[in-house]
Amino acid sequence: MSFEAIRADFSAIANWVKPNSTLLDLGCGDGVFLEYIRRAKQVKTYGVEISDEQVLACVAKDLDVIQQDLEGGLALFEDQSFDTVVLSQTLQTIHQTEAILREVVRVGKECVVSFPNFAHWSHRAAVFMGHMPVTKSLPYDWYNTPNVRVLTIKDFESLASKIGIRILDRVVLHDSQEVKWCANLFGSLAIYRVGRT
């Protein structure tokens, strides 16, 4: 993913984060978003990450990071203990999809969930031509992808209503630009603000 695309993603999320609040980033990677939001909004941040190298990268950035597997749930975190819980482009890498979504809205007063949209036209075109898509938002081959659940905007919204997650806001992006029209066709990255019903 390009640097600009990351920025667009970050600033869309930052618009929903209140200054001086608390934020938990699940699957925080090397902590680049946490570093950004901490500076942009003076937010007290924590990250959760499974990889040794990424945890080390977070520690080097002076970030508070907890090493654990998200598949095991969020037992370390109390109900409604964070103003914002972020699950940024991580949902598609988790097997326990419903469980993690329930955990996210249990721990966060408000939550941000983002994922690459499999229904983007370029992905549809790749499948139409007989191949799994390899694009900017899905940059892996089918045999080495960390993604275990690919989903579309429509899929997420129907699952959300099924498991009692309220959608408060939505921003869909492609190449850093907001997509307003036919989002499920022209958007490659969907970002939702959600909460408990």
Binding site: T22, V59, D64, V65, Q67, Q68, A75, L76, S81
Partner: peptide, 19 residues
């Protein structure tokens, strides 16, 4: 993890690694 949870409950600063 019990130590980490007690620190998190207080929003104290903590980094935790499980090697």
């Amino acid at each position: 993890r019990e130590i980490v949870k007690a620190l998190l409950d207080n929003k104290h600063r903590v980094a935790y690694a499980e090697i």
